[in-house]
C-alpha cells in the first residue's frame, strides 16, 4: 500500500504541513494522529529576541522518526527559492526540497516560469525536488523530464479549502507521469483528500484543512482514514456509472 519517493518507501500517503498550529505540541500531536511520515517545514528568520531555552520546531519532531521536508514558501522568484533551498540543505543535511515559487501574495498561485527556472538550477545543484505547480498538464510533464522526483499540482489555491477544482487535469497529469503525483494545496476536508486518492494520486499534502479545523487532532485522524479509503477505492477500481437504474437483486426471483 505504500508509495515510493526519492529512494524511500512510505507507508502513509498523507503528508502534512506544520503551519498554523497553536503550538509545537499540537503540531506533534496532529502528526501522530495523522499517521503521516513526512512533514513540511518553512525556512525563515529565527526570533533573535527569544529565550535561550525556547524550543524549536525541530526539538518536537525527531528527524530520525519523521522525514522533514523543507519548503521554499514565501518565495516569489527562482533566485529566492534557490537561496532558501541551499539554507535548508545546510540546516537539515538533506537534498530533498519542496520547491514552491509563487506568483503574488494575493493569489499564492505557482509562478510557472520561475518554478521551471528554479527546478532546473536545483537539479544541477544536486537537489531532489518535489515541485509545487499548477494543474498545467504539459508543465507537469516538463518538470518531471528535467528531473523533479515528484510533481505536486494544486487542488485549488493555498489555504482556500475548495477541494479539487479540475479533476480532469489532475487525471491527465497522473496518466502521463512516471514520478509520484501528490496533490498539494486546496484540500478542505476529508472527502477532498479521498477524491484526490481515488483519481490515482500517489499521496496528498495538506496543512490548513487540519490546522484550521475546529478539532485538528480529530481532523488529522479523519484525513488519515480518508487517504487510506481513497487509495483502496482506487485500487479496487470503482463500478461503472450507469445512466439507468439497475436492481441489485435478480428480477426473476421477485415474488409474483
Amino acid at each position: 500500500m505504500g508509495f515510493f519517493l526519492n529512494n524511500n518507501t512510505y507507508e502513509s500517503r498523507l503528508i502534512i504541513g506544520s503551519g498554523k498550529y497553536k503550538n509545537f505540541q499540537e503540531t506533534k500531536d496532529v502528526l501522530v494522529a495523522s499517521g503521516a511520515e513526512i512533514i513540511t517545514v518553512a525556512i525563515k528568520r529565527t526570533n533573535i529576541g527569544q529565550d535561550f531555552n525556547q524550543k524549536n520546531l525541530l526539538d518536537f519532531i525527531d528527524p530520525n522518526e519523521y522525514k522533514i521536508l523543507p519548503n521554499t514558501a514565501g518565495c516569489f522568484s527562482s533566485e529566492d527559492a534557490i537561496r532558501i533551498s541551499l539554507i535548508a540543505r545546510e540546516l537539515l543535511g538533506d537534498n530533498l526540497i519542496k520547491l514552491e515559487v509563487l506568483q503574488d501574495q494575493e493569489t499564492l498561485l505557482p509562478n510557472e516560469s520561475e518554478t521551471l527556472i528554479a527546478a532546473k538550477e536545483l537539479v544541477n545543484l544536486g537537489f531532489s525536488i518535489m515541485v509545487y505547480t499548477t494543474d498545467n498538464v504539459s508543465l507537469a510533464k516538463e518538470l518531471e523530464t528535467i528531473g523533479c522526483v515528484s510533481v505536486m499540482p494544486l487542488a485549488s489555491p493555498i489555504g482556500s479549502g475548495k477541494g479539487i477544482i479540475d479533476s480532469s487535469n489532475i487525471k491527465k497529469i497522473i496518466h502521463n507521469a512516471n514520478v509520484p503525483i501528490i496533490v498539494d494545496a486546496g484540500i478542505g476536508t476529508a472527502s477532498d483528500a479521498t477524491i484526490a486518492m481515488e483519481l490515482g494520486c500517489d499521496a496528498v499534502l495538506l496543512n490548513s484543512a487540519i490546522a484550521m479545523s475546529k478539532k485538528p487532532i480529530l481532523m488529522a485522524e479523519a484525513m488519515k482514514h480518508a487517504v487510506i479509503s481513497g487509495r483502496k477505492a482506487y485500487e479496487a477500481k470503482r463500478m461503472r456509472i450507469s445512466e439507468i437504474a439497475i436492481p441489485s437483486s435478480n428480477k426473476k426471483d421477485v415474488l409474483s
Partner: peptide, 10 residues
Amino acid sequence: IEIITAVGGG
C-alpha cells in the same frame, strides 16, 4: 547577518 531556522509551514 541572517539567522535562519525551520518554522511551521505547509
